[in-house]
Amino acid sequence: MSAANDEALVPPEGLAEQIASASAYRLAHEDTDLLSSDDLRPLRLQLEFLKPERAMRAAGIQSTIVVFGGARILSLEAAAAQLDEVQALHRSDPDRPNAHREMFAARRAVKYSRYYLEAQRFASLVSSRFQREGRREFVVVTGGGPGIMEAANRGAYQVGARSVGLNVTLPHEQKPNPYITPELAFRFHYFSLRKMHFLLRAKALVAFPGGYGTLDELFEVLTLVQTGKMPKVPVILVGSAFWKSLIDFDFLVEDGLISPEDLKLFSYAESAEDIVRQLEAFYGGHVPDASHPEWVP
């Protein structure tokens, strides 16, 4: 072979480094482009199921109580501070645009702050009772964000109990509230997997006033129970005046869209103690056996 041919066989300088850094050479589990591809969606779904599941098992969590409610509901302290600010602005400039609307919204926030307090108190009551001596029963689970979610995680935190937060990636990023147990703060891409983890260990759903997200989760649970896809659990709507103003369940019965028996799938409560009493009545004062799950989606 001639010297010219020998030179042609010598790879260009830097080619070895280029090969080593190419995406094709990456280990499959380190290739983020591959993992983000459409073909790998089934694997991402599996990972998003397994990661929280492994952490829940490691934490010894046997049963949970899901707390839903509005992200915009403030604590009394925050609502009162907001009202003071709006009142000060109103005194200095009563004719500014939207002044009356801002005043109405601030007063309404103070009114709704009672639900923040009741969610906080309920989480404290149920967590202190069922997480004694290392027990991990009736662990509070929320969507991990502000408002009622923060209140429930905060209530568990105040009594030294664990609680779970299931955040989800959104266009306007939702940050986890600071009261979630750090090793039980999860973030999801897929709403479907998040919904599954809400209910896998759920022994009750407590719904405080809220918006689209709260209604979505509430009606999903009612549908699953109504259709027998999951066993009946207490579904407790906190604030009967709010819920009865929002949804006319009797109208659905009168027009034959649901059966009268479907009204028994949920109940109303007004206070933290009332919620606890209803849980005790449903379960006879005992935590249900979670070692044999009654449903697996």
Rank of each mutant, 00 (worst) to 15 (best):
S2V: 01
N5V: 10
L9Q: 09
P12L: 12
I19C: 01
A24C: 13
R26H: 06
L27H: 15
A28Y: 14
A28N: 14
L34C: 04
L43T: 10
L43Y: 12
L50Y: 07
P52K: 01
Q62M: 11
Q62L: 11
Q62A: 13
I65R: 01
F68A: 05
G69F: 01
A79Q: 02
E85G: 13
L89K: 15
R91T: 13
R91V: 10
D93L: 07
P97L: 06
M103P: 04
F104C: 11
A105T: 11
A106M: 11
Y112M: 15
R114Y: 09
L117D: 13
A119G: 01
Q120L: 10
R121N: 03
F122I: 03
L125V: 05
L125T: 06
R129M: 04
R129E: 08
M149N: 04
E150I: 09
N153V: 05
G155I: 07
A156R: 06
N167V: 12
N167P: 08
T169D: 14
L170M: 10
H172T: 11
R201F: 10
A202T: 09
A207M: 00
F208K: 01
T214P: 02
V238Q: 01
D250P: 11
D255E: 15
L257M: 14
E261V: 09
E261Y: 13
D262R: 07
S267M: 12
S267E: 08
A272K: 00
A272W: 00
I275P: 01
R277I: 02
A281I: 01
F282C: 05
F282E: 04
S291M: 13
V296I: 15
